[in-house]
């Protein structure tokens, strides 16, 4: 379970997150929505420790990660699919996967299980990851994160620039993760892509979590989407 409580984050002197809080239970899919520049990506980076919060706390399964270095995050169950994939583009597919496995000391069983989820990657293992198609790159970014065997998976715009079939595949994997008890925090611009799978939706505005609502409430009252996302 992930619990973020009242974190403040800054880029230099500019405050990006203000008393930001959210929580995601095991097996829950939480979608974080907000306009451009609202602080969605920073929120995920803060949870990962890549933008260390100046105050507040980030707790995963009762372990306070707030003061730990960023590289400790995977060991405590945090997995990350960054915005824009951020693959090690000059490394091969196999090497990218190896980096994921090394993060938490996983081995061949994890590798095989992850590659079974994304069979196309098995055929591309020796290919340089920067030369993959956009969809394949996104699959690799997810595979790399899943190789860490996360309890909490943070995904930053995983459907960005992908064709519908690929979005469906990603949704399928996210639902499968939910069923194994992984908490998923999903940052998305495409509301239609995530609402079918989300359990809760949190709205972020000016670095603050304004509201967290069950997804059913959004279906009943779409005005929240208009207010916070502008659609």
């Amino acid at each position: 379970m992930l619990t973020v409580t009242d974190i403040d984050c800054f880029y230099g002197d500019v405050q990006v997150l203000r008393q930001f809080s959210l929580s995601a239970a095991s097996g829950e899919i939480l979608c974080l929505l907000g306009r451009n520049g609202a602080g969605k990506t920073t929120a995920l980076k803060a949870i990962m420790g890549l933008v260390p919060p100046r105050s507040g706390s980030v707790v995963v399964d009762d372990v306070d990660l707030t003061k730990l270095p960023a590289h400790a995050a995977p060991k405590y169950g945090l997995g990350y699919v960054p915005q824009g994939r951020r693959l090690f583009s000059e490394l091969t597919v196999a090497e990218n996967i190896e980096i994921g496995l090394m993060a938490t000391g996983q081995g061949k069983p994890t590798r095989d299980r992850v590659l079974d989820l994304f069979p196309v990657l098995r055929e591309r293992l020796s290919q340089v990851s920067g030369k993959l198609s956009g969809g394949e790159q996104q699959m690799l970014a997810m595979a790399r994160a899943l190789c860490t065997e996360p309890n909490v998976l943070l995904m930053d715009e995983p459907t960005e620039g992908l064709q519908p079939s690929m979005i469906a595949k990603i949704r399928e994997v996210v639902v499968a993760l939910k069923q194994t008890g992984v908490a998923v925090v999903l940052v998305e611009q495409r509301v239609d892509a995530v609402l079918p799978v989300a359990d809760h939706v949190a709205f972020i505005e000016n670095g603050m979590n304004r509201e967290t609502v069950p997804v059913q409430q959004l279906r009943d009252d779409p005005s929240l989407l208009h207010r916070y996302v502008g659609i």
Binding site: L50, H71, P74, R86, E90, G100, M102, A103, T104, T148
Partner: peptide, 14 residues
């Protein structure tokens, strides 16, 4: 090599 290509993502992977 991973650190060389992207230090932030490298940190996110331990």
């Amino acid at each position: 090599r991973a650190t060389q290509f992207d230090r932030e993502t490298a940190q996110a992977f331990g």
